[in-house]
């Protein structure tokens, strides 16, 4: 359904995303994991055709049934795809909604823009049905509210309703639950999974939270320093990681396992600022296993859909 190949994004001379390739099939749920500066949100924006003007992209992003490459495609083509075949849920629902427009009208508009329905009355009926689908209560009354009158969780459900309005083929969620409470997060995750499943949409779920990815997705892409460093089925990557970064991240987020001194397994140092990652392997300045070989960029080992880019993988270390 969605095929990204050799995606590069740079701000002037500064590379932000390097050689990112992956595919997401219809009905498949793929997680894109990364910390700040990993380039995960930029990748999502590139897929959605929403990169800002101060960065440039190269490579290809292809959507099944569309002949053109979405990288560098005309704004006309992109806007006809956005909201119909491609949909996105953002991290901050307040800024993604129009503050001076009633909720129900914003959802109805999503139906009207792409002429999915003919008239306002039908769009309005659909909007109420969509709001019900994301399990908002008293939609007739709630629909008349403005975004600021809703809680964060409610706003995020409205965004999801808008994203699902035209049964998209690709649903991108960029940290949709990061700003939410855990109980609200759980509800929204359930709605996202169901919404994508019902439409057999390709789901690209971006987050920094390993547990969330494991709960929602079947496959995972691990990003660090603008590169995909490991990918594969969730069950394998998150139980038997190959890349040293994936291993470090898993250990660092495991709050139940400590060493003899009762300490958590931390990764040394901090995530470098964008563009300040080392040459060669992007993780080598924080990696306990780094040596001279790592000064050369590691190639991809394994299958395109299940492999890693590490000279000294965890499993194959002598």
């Amino acid at each position: 359904m969605l095929k990204v190949d050799g995606l590069n994004i740079a701000a002037g001379e500064l590379p932000l995303v390097s050689d990112v390739s992956f595919t997401v099939a219809g009905g498949e749920r793929v997680g894109l994991i990364g910390e700040s500066g990993s380039g995960k949100s930029l990748t999502a924006s590139a897929v959605f055709g929403l990169l800002s003007d101060d960065v440039s992209a190269a490579g290809s992003v292809r959507l099944e049934g569309v002949d053109e490459n979405l990288v560098g495609a005309s704004e006309n083509l992109l806007s006809s795809l956005r909201g119909s075949r491609l949909a996105m849920v953002f991290q901050e629902p307040m800024t993604a909604l129009n503050p001076s427009m009633r909720i129900v009208d914003q959802v109805a508009e999503a139906r009207l823009i792409h002429r999915t329905v003919g008239d306002r009355a039908a769009a309005h009926r659909d909007a109420l049905r969509l709001l019900e689908q994301v399990r908002l209560r008293d939609v007739a009354e709630l629909g008349r509210a403005y975004p600021h009158q809703l809680s964060g969780g409610q706003r995020q459900r409205v965004l999801l309703a808008i994203a699902l309005a035209n049964d998209p083929d690709v649903l991108i969620c960029d940290e949709p639950t990061t700003a939410l409470d855990v109980t609200v997060q759980a509800q929204l995750l359930d709605l996202i999974v169901k919404g994508a499943k019902e439409r057999t949409a390709a789901l690209l779920f971006i987050t920094h939270d390993l547990a969330v990815v494991a709960t929602v997705c079947e496959r995972v892409l691990v990003m660090y320093g603008g590169r995909i460093v490991e990918s594969g089925p969730v069950a394998e990557v998150l139980t038997a990681p190959e890349h040293r970064y994936t291993k470090g991240l898993l250990d660092a987020s495991d709050l139940e396992t400590v060493d003899e001194g009762g300490r958590l397994h931390a990764i040394a140092g901090a995530v470098p600022a964008a563009g300040k990652f080392p040459s060669g392997c992007v993780f080598r300045n924080r990696c306990p296993r780094a040596d001279e070989q790592c000064e050369v960029s590691p190639p991809w080992f394994g299958e395109p859909a299940h492999g890693h880019a590490c000279w000294h993988p965890v499993g194959g270390d002598a």
Binding site: V182, V193, K194, L250, D254
Partner: peptide
């Protein structure tokens, strides 16, 4: 409602969280 890696890998889905 807290998603955990261990739980998810042993089959806990988003629906189970709620």
């Amino acid at each position: 409602a807290i998603p955990t890696l261990r739980g998810a890998l042993s089959g806990v889905t988003a629906e189970d969280l709620i």
